[in-house]
Design a protein around this nucleic acid. Structure first.
Lengths: 206, 206
DNA sequence: CTTATGGTGGACCAACCGGTCAAGAACAAG
DNA sequence: CTTGTTCTTGACCGGTTGGTCCACCATAAG
């Protein structure tokens, strides 16, 4: 049921989602919603936290389980161009959408966003260190700096997807950014069969 | 006066801006606003188009007037980290904010956004070609593809600024992305005095 | 069966939304 | 000054918002 609410907020945004919408998608009465969550804002925060937690878990697992960390980093950047049709791309990311909509005025959302992105930076930095240890990435690069660059690039791609850019162009741009920011990865991937491709994590659900 | 309205939409977003807000910042009565612009939506579109036009003009001029195009490309990427305090960074870009807020549901805004970003891609691609002709960029790279990567990176940085990331970190990330995506520019800049630094275009006004 | 209980739905509320419109202020022409 | 025209104002409208609250009912204990 939280999933349905999440979808609603994701598709329409926070302010554009009315209580009627929430009642419709949750099959719950107004009173029940308020008894269970207390507030529209509180309900939203709960959904957002759930989303962020899932996001973080997915990324961490992808980084940890990849036989070569650089592959996980690569598919992280490719994520926004993941779905064949452009539907998920045009949806963007609930956290990113909420940040642009609310972060400037809503301290709770701002805090959630900052914390989430710092967490993702840390996970990505771990991935960079792993990739360096595995010889797939130049050892001279600063792991945290590289992680921030990867994150910024991925968020930029997410945004470009939301502008309606067609998926092929988006994927090409993503590939370009990934190979540019993970310089030596291409050479390695050339000489490798695709073992245990972590693929693009499914972000169409929350 | 359109500037004041622009600021209001920029700071609060479209839906979060009420007619009372518009009356306040414009010092105009409700009827006058409707007589002059017909509609809240129409007024917003007018402001947005003005903003996009100014954006496009600024970028084009920066690219054309730079003695070395690669410098203009570099400062384009650095733009989101331009202001010393993080105020402008946290504001983001009116077009980007509006796109994430409305593009999914408002066809007019979606069209405006797509058109604007295609235009910027074209201008950036021109810059890339110039830089290639001037020997500052590898001639083998696809100009349009590079332009799209630069644009995505810049938008990603704009977004990271909106999350509240401190300006120093933002600037470092921007520098990292710029040098990574404009590979040979660093070498040249080393041997160059900073002639006619186009600087970071001022995007705190519309 | 009766009764107690707690979760549920929707009537209801004040506030505010975007939008309309008639009354009147401001001003130029004569 | 009078007159005619333009522009501005704020009262007003129906509709919708987020939020409150109470009547109701399904269930389970006795």
């Amino acid at each position: 049921m939280l999933r349905a609410v999440c979808d609603q907020f994701w598709d329409a945004g926070y302010t554009a989602t009315s209580l009627q919408d929430l009642m419709r998608v949750s099959n719950l009465g107004k009173g029940s919603l308020y008894a269970a969550f207390g507030d529209k804002h509180e309900l939203f925060l709960q959904v957002l936290r759930r989303y962020v937690a899932s996001l973080d878990r997915t990324l961490r697992r992808s980084i940890d389980s990849a036989p070569r960390a650089v592959e996980a980093l690569h598919s992280f950047v490719m994520m926004p161009a993941g779905d064949p049709d452009g539907v998920a791309a045009r949806r963007g990311c609930l956290l990113a959408n909420s940040t642009t909509e609310l972060a400037a005025t809503d301290p709770a959302v701002a805090a959630e966003a900052r914390q989430a992105y710092e967490g993702m930076t840390a996970v990505l930095a771990d991935g960079v260190r792993s990739a360096q240890a595995q010889g797939d990435l130049s050892a001279s690069a600063d792991p945290v700096g590289t992680a921030r660059a990867l994150l910024a690039a991925q968020q930029g791609l997410t945004f470009m997807g939301r502008t309606g850019m067609d998926v092929e162009t988006l994927a090409a741009t993503a590939r370009s950014l990934a190979t540019e920011l993970l310089p030596t990865s291409a050479d390695h991937r050339d000489s490798m069969s695709p073992p245990h491709d972590p693929g693009v994590p499914d972000r169409t659900r929350c």
